[in-house]
Write a protein that binds this DNA or RNA. Sequence first.
DNA 1: ATGAAAGCGCTAACAA
DNA 2: TTGTTAGCGCTTTCAT
Lengths: 336, 336
Amino acid sequence: MKTTIRDVAREVSLSHTTVSRVLNGREDIAIPDITRRRVEEAARALGYRVNPAARALATGRTGVVSLWASGVYRAFWADVIVQVEGQARRAAYELIINDLSARVGRPADDDPSVWPIDGILALGCPAEVAAYLALPASQRQPLVSMGVYHNEKTDFVGLELGGATRQALRHLLSVGCRRIAYVGPLNLNADDPRRVAYEEEMRESEKAPQMMGVPGGSHRGTRAAARRLIIDYHKTHGLPDGLFCHNDEIAIGAYRGLCDLGVRVPDDVAIVGCDGIEDTEYLETPLSTIALPLEAMCEQAWRLLSRRWAKPEASVEGVHLPAQFVPRASSLRAPA
Amino acid sequence: MKTTIRDVAREVSLSHTTVSRVLNGREDIAIPDITRRRVEEAARALGYRVNPAARALATGRTGVVSLWASGVYRAFWADVIVQVEGQARRAAYELIINDLSARVGRPADDDPSVWPIDGILALGCPAEVAAYLALPASQRQPLVSMGVYHNEKTDFVGLELGGATRQALRHLLSVGCRRIAYVGPLNLNADDPRRVAYEEEMRESEKAPQMMGVPGGSHRGTRAAARRLIIDYHKTHGLPDGLFCHNDEIAIGAYRGLCDLGVRVPDDVAIVGCDGIEDTEYLETPLSTIALPLEAMCEQAWRLLSRRWAKPEASVEGVHLPAQFVPRASSLRAPA
DNA sequence: ATGAAAGCGCTAACAA
DNA sequence: TTGTTAGCGCTTTCAT
């Protein structure tokens, strides 16, 4: 059987209460050093390990934080997981990963199997976040909403894409692009900040917007789908001379498609992607992209969560983090 | 306050015992359908959510599985996380991610903050796995060891790289490489199966082995380090005509370095990588690689874990999964 | 078909 | 300085 604090207590002829106090390092309670030592030694000797379920039941805190994401496949989510895991570890928390996109049936808020966590970091997942926030406050844990699609009704760290997108588009215009298409998922939201910025910029520069829809959303086959899309367009509609891609996966696929067709990048077609994933640097023609401040986002999110634990009643706090346009060879050519 | 089964019981004028039985779907206990319905309705109305900490304390099972990995940065680990998360979710388990590489201090086995999980899936982490297995059985949970560096003293799913590596090297020889270097981390294990296969093949074909060490291990800067290494070698030692790269990150970096130097791939230097990450397909010259059966690995690992839960006393079972060499343009040229 | 009572291992008032 | 006692919310015998 597992050793419990009572076993340890018996060993040193003390009450389990004292053992609990020692093992929890309660310096606020006067206990002679000799006693402490004896307890610690006995605990070690017996191989005592705390039972967090019991502790959680007694304290109401679990030491676990959940990361909500919808589809862990997008390359930058691995980065987010690493960052968040690091934050959690440093704070002696455990991290549970919940891929909500794959969740069958109802959203997480009425999924009874969800572990009782002390807090939630949600990357995107706007629908689930909204549903969760609709629960009575007594039934919720603190939730920090992160990402491009964040929710400002709770603590949040927003990734702002509008400025960088505008910059990217002006850049494309400045190198002489006259027909810039937006390559994004078929079911793209009308109020996606990239799309909004795109439409505004096109209007302002009096160019016709052109949406190119990649079927199938952004899953692992995105690159292949984008590649095919480009090849199809080449045959049917002809190609634009500039591509703003909704994300780097799409950009990489599109780039590949162009290479297959023998189209030169950036000379014939200039490309800009979005997300700043590492792969974009290692193509023969490194892709221009929009870099996301992921590390800062995760840091801030953890800070907000800690703050919420410390002051449950504090008013909502949010941070806006601007993304940054990173011009690279795929869109650099002599100005028109 | 949170609603408990007692609240629900009060609402329907039954004992909390009955409520528990209904809510757990205990069909083995005779309860009239009307009663069941009433209970379920009340539970819904009151917004009842089970408290898993309490359940865990009562049952001794937590419904949580931990994934040990050492450095979540390697590209294919995102895939592993997705796969494992999927397996867990389908079985109504939660997944905790533990990045042991970043763990300061002692290995996980004496880290008291580790949540009591029902089982562990360990990808690599040979040292931590060995330390864990050294604990008395009564203090451990089932652990399945996965990956190239797996431990066969517990249930395991081994990734076998030897065969594919040999195939890759013979392939390089067959296209005329006469000087094949192994590009790997500086601190590479002497018994790494890739390295062993490399040394054997070199011996058998009477070629001199040449190790090229990438500083810094396989972290996010690997690509950059490999790129630099290649460039340095070009100046100092001259370049081999074939590169077997320890992993795809290194291969991509090396490839990039060669491009920078104007060296043609595969004509001047042929490259093979290892891991089968997606990026290798999207370079102008797609890289030959060794594809890992990750999906099968995760499936098998979950199967073994379930089996262990069902039969705690069963004898150790293990599976060996061979990796597969995937020749692509980076090593395809007319045979010598 | 339903309930009473015990107990999972721990923390935390309250006593001594 | 240490111990007693009472839960935390749930599952599970054992009665009825």
